[in-house]
């Protein structure tokens, strides 16, 4: 399928905070309460529309476990966006955010957009981390912030899409060098033919199938 841009994401955070569930909810619109623990990294993808443009998101969902860190680190490089996830019902997952952030900043490109996500907002009765705390942490470190529920799908679309909007704006501002693929952004085959005629965009679609 043709697209204007391709953005690469990485999802990080402690084990059990709901990274895989967020991805599944976003790509498949379903929730799987019981699932296998992620081993290494897993891949997902979906197309979204921003500003009338088709944007392909390719997402690496990483295992939260410390022992896999040497594998997962290599996926920071080449990511344009990161979702940093904690669990609002587990204080320790919030406490570990600083470590995750240091890791991300150290191994990614400096323009990477980071979205902080407090997941499991449906479990209000078991909440251990106030929404204000999440907001404060995000403000302090220059991140975007949202609370989500992979279970009810609340804010899941928004989390992925707002991250993409932020990346898109940075592209418009010329912050990202879109010709350097190491930034996690790729120009789609359609983009090159935006100004051409209808037949031109059809050609773009075909090319989109065969290349990327």
């Amino acid at each position: 399928m043709a697209y204007a841009y391709l953005f690469k994401y990485i999802i990080i955070g402690d084990t059990g905070v709901g990274k895989s569930c967020l991805l599944l909810q976003f790509t498949d619109k379903r929730f799987q309460p019981v699932h296998d623990l992620t081993i290494g990294v897993e891949f997902g993808a979906r197309m979204i529309t921003i500003d009338g443009k088709q944007i392909k998101l390719q997402i690496w969902d990483t295992a939260g476990q410390e022992s896999f860190r040497s594998i997962t680190r290599s996926y920071y490089r080449g990511a344009a966006g990161a979702l940093l996830v904690y669990d609002i019902t587990r204080r320790d997952t919030f406490n570990h955010l600083t470590t995750w952030l240091e890791d991300a900043r150290q191994h990614s490109n400096s323009n990477m957009v980071i979205m902080l996500i407090g997941n499991k907002s449906d479990l209000e009765s078991r909440r251990e981390v106030k929404k204000e705390e999440g907001e404060a942490f995000a403000r302090e470190h220059g991140l975007i912030f949202m609370e989500t529920s992979a279970k009810t799908a609340s804010n899941v679309e928004e989390a992925f899409i707002n991250t993409a909007k932020e990346i898109y704006e940075k592209i418009q501002e010329g912050v990202f060098d879109i010709n350097n693929e190491a930034n996690g952004i790729k120009i789609g085959p359609q983009h090159a033919t935006t100004n051409s005629t209808l037949s031109g965009s059809q050609g773009g679609q075909q090319a989109g199938g065969g290349c990327c």
């Binding site: 059990g16 296998d36 623990l37």
Partner: peptide, 10 residues
């Protein structure tokens, strides 16, 4: 904590 895991199959 890790060997008990968060949400493994039943």
């Amino acid at each position: 904590r890790q060997s008990s895991g968060p949400t493994p199959p039943s």
